[in-house]
Design a protein around this nucleic acid. Structure first.
Lengths: 191, 191
DNA sequence: TAGCATACTTACTAGTAAGTAAGATGTCAA
DNA sequence: TTGACATCTTACTTACTAGTAAGTATGCTA
């Protein structure tokens, strides 16, 4: 009984992502997914022969999602500060909807235990984020929307590190910590 | 044959910490420690009945280490900016000597999978760090050593998040990323 | 309608995880 | 020198891990 084309497969990626963000790559098993979706362990292996295949699919989808977000007409036409807030909203979303850290943060702490293909894809993800932010900050400073010392790359590293670290810290303190981090980094970028 | 008092026990904590920082709490096993120290699995269980006992000991020792660092006469008498650098050095040390992320970062991403006592101790660790940094930044701003918008707590969150996120990002990019993050946060604190 | 692909399930394997029970060995104190 | 305690080892259990092999139901297509 195949309900909708690719239904189970995308459900596996959905749940896999949620579990990865919530418990780390070594913190969940195929059994967790199987039980939760009401299918058998082997059904997951059918779609993703190895766990690393699933991990890879999760990262690739996230990269594409970010790429689409960046290329989105609506997003592109936003004023710089609103576009920045829209970026922050991606991270804020992790917190509210998924009660989790961000993908890059989760993957980076597990990095040494990840299979090679996932490591490479993780590098790609971080490269995407850093590059986007660097260009965005550079343009913004030239336009006078943002102000910061050092190079756009320096500042891009800081901004991403704050998102990542902020989400993680929030987990052990309270939700306000992430929001405080966001408002502080916004202040620090003020012209 | 008990060579030195508490020798094995502290060796287990040493290696446990290294593994925790390097691979996450779910990324290593008692077997890893046993093989590396040339002892048997059960010897570790003698000193730490459950893995959570070991995890707890690791965090507690780190908290004490930080407490001692903070109370150290040498550290205390340092000028603010040098004291800040000394703080950054703690994190830089994780990178060079251990090729790892920081303890709070590692624990926070695994947080939901950690046993309760470890969760509580992790909260304590983050509280220690946040509190110290908040007071330090507050004093520094009053003395005119530092300059930043918002409250000292806002800025403390940012600084810690940058340390944490910076170490993690460095893992998938190159070592320079952490150093760039440090120099950028130093710039952002300039009066 | 025969055959073939898709999307599974059932039933298993090999390996690893944490944890335990019982015993061996050494050290020290009375 | 005996007994108690600390620090281990040997030998195991139970539970879970990823992964596989073989079989089944359903529906599409030639």
């Amino acid at each position: 009984m195949s309900r909708t084309q690719g239904d189970t497969k995308s459900k596996i990626i959905d749940l896999g992502e949620k579990l990865l963000l919530g418990k780390g790559f070594n913190g969940f098993s195929y059994a967790d997914i199987a039980i939760s979706l009401g299918i058998k362990n082997a059904a997951i292996h059918y779609h993703f022969p190895c766990k690393s295949d699933l991990g890879l699919a999760i990262i690739q989808r996230a990269r594409e999602r970010f790429k689409k977000w960046g290329a989105n007409k609506e997003t592109e036409q936003l004023p710089d500060r609103e576009r920045l807030d829209s970026f922050f909203q991606i991270y804020r979303h992790y917190l509210t909807k998924r009660e989790s850290v961000c993908l890059s943060g989760a993957l980076e702490t597990d990095f040494t235990t990840l299979p090679k293909p996932m490591q490479e894809e993780t590098r790609g993800l971080v490269y995407d984020l850093l590059t986007w932010m660097e260009i965005f900050l550079d343009q913004g400073r030239k336009r006078g929307t943002f102000s910061f010392p050092g190079t756009p790359r320096d500042q891009a590293i800081i901004v991403l590190a704050v998102m990542q670290g902020g989400l993680q810290m929030t987990r052990v303190t309270d939700q306000s910590v992430f929001d405080l981090a966001v408002s502080q980094i916004r202040r620090l970028l003020k012209p």
